[in-house]
Nucleic acid binder design. Structure first.
Lengths: 214, 214
DNA sequence: TGTACATCAGTGAACGCGCGTTCACTGATGTAC
DNA sequence: TGTACATCAGTGAACGCGCGTTCACTGATGTAC
């Protein structure tokens, strides 16, 4: 995708090796799984010597941390875009975010597989945690909007976590693949089922009962 | 745990090397994570030569497949025990199973980490899928009991999958560890929040509305 | 516009390591008679 | 109860491999003047 040197001519310098290496990681995961990701394989795929990645990412954990952070940034942007594109009520926006969450996992499997695996990034956890916190923050905000001003912070966090668990669970099951073998062939139906449950949970909240919003 | 030779004396034969190797895998994951599991490390820990495991499990994927299958067997037994020990209504039994599901993940982290990672077991997937299907079957049964005879099979599967997603999502988040860093320090409160959502979803089902059971 | 020079980005050889797997072997066990 | 023998379970040496990382290096780039 990234060709590297300007104007298509090969040069000693790559052009944008960091981006090319991150692309390489995604391709490797997609084709052979996480265990086939090595610094040397990523370098091969980017067309540089195997020592080149160290200049940009330090070590293997650094490369994976950058990949996870890139994924979280895209993830947060996806959730925000889904929220902003959805019409209507806070609940409809939350539903759209839930759909986007699950779709992101299946459409960007390589990112999703790395984003929630802190053991892969070693000492670089701070970067990943920070970007991951943003995504969750967006979700919490929307849950707060659904519950209204009468909800306590604790209630918001509780509902947000339950919501997160629902969509994250289905996303994980879809990515890890046990569903097909058990007869759930339809990810869309599964998604709607989970979102139905999430919204039922929302409506069962005390603060919703007192002041339903939509 | 397993001492091996009878009466505590060392003998040429181990006594129960397969069990000792499975124990070793659990210990290795607990102490150093999944990536530290190797045939040689497991053999070292069991006190045998590094070539010994091959006699029982063939290759590395075989060992991990056996470990995952052992985990699923324990998992199914745990869910059944929780169901049978819970008093009262089908819904209360389902709630107990949900608690047991999440508790299993945090209490038996090594098993849980391997059970849902089919890429680790290579060509031995059938064994794992079979035992995994049992666990899900138990869950489906209980959801069916909650919804009653008027529910269609499709509805039961849909609700069971949503339920599964909820508890599996929280279990995954607890095991992967992002929750602590985001301010959710209390797994029990989180568990109850998720179960509240799951049961709200159950009660929102058409067949429940028509024929509430409890 | 030129020139000197510092800095940056990639090279390629080399290292030591632990891994999975194979192999011929040997000690231990169990069974047939 | 004893003996022969097949089978089982573990040994230890050896193999080839790809890995991450380090290192001195060199080509390319950009900046000061």
């Amino acid at each position: 995708m990234m060709d590297g040197a300007r104007n298509g001519t090969r040069s000693y310098h790559h052009g944008d090796l960091p981006a090319a290496l991150l692309d390489a990681v995604a391709a490797l995961i997609r084709e052979g799984g996480l265990e086939t990701v090595t610094l040397r394989a990523a370098a091969r795929r980017a067309g540089v010597s195997h020592a080149a990645p160290a200049h940009h990412f330090g070590d293997k954990a650094g490369l994976l941390a950058a990949f996870a952070a890139q994924g979280f940034a895209a993830f947060t942007a996806t959730l925000e875009a889904a929220r902003d594109a959805a019409p209507g009520t806070p609940v409809e926006r939350l539903r759209a975010m839930g759909r986007a969450y699950i779709a992101f996992a299946t459409e960007h499997r390589p990112w999703f597989e790395v984003m929630f695996r802190p053991e892969l990034v070693g000492s670089h956890q701070e970067v990943v945690t920070a970007t991951g916190g943003d995504a969750f923050g967006v979700l919490v905000e929307q849950v707060a909007a659904c519950l209204g001003a009468h909800a306590t912070e604790r209630e918001v966090l509780r509902v947000a976590l339950a919501t997160w668990s629902g969509v994250h669970g289905l996303a994980t099951l879809l990515v890890d693949g046990p569903l097909e073998e058990l007869g759930f062939a339809d990810p869309e139906e599964a998604t709607e089922a989970v979102l139905g449950m999430v919204l039922a949970g929302l409506r069962a909240q005390p603060s919703w009962q007192e002041h339903p919003i939509a």
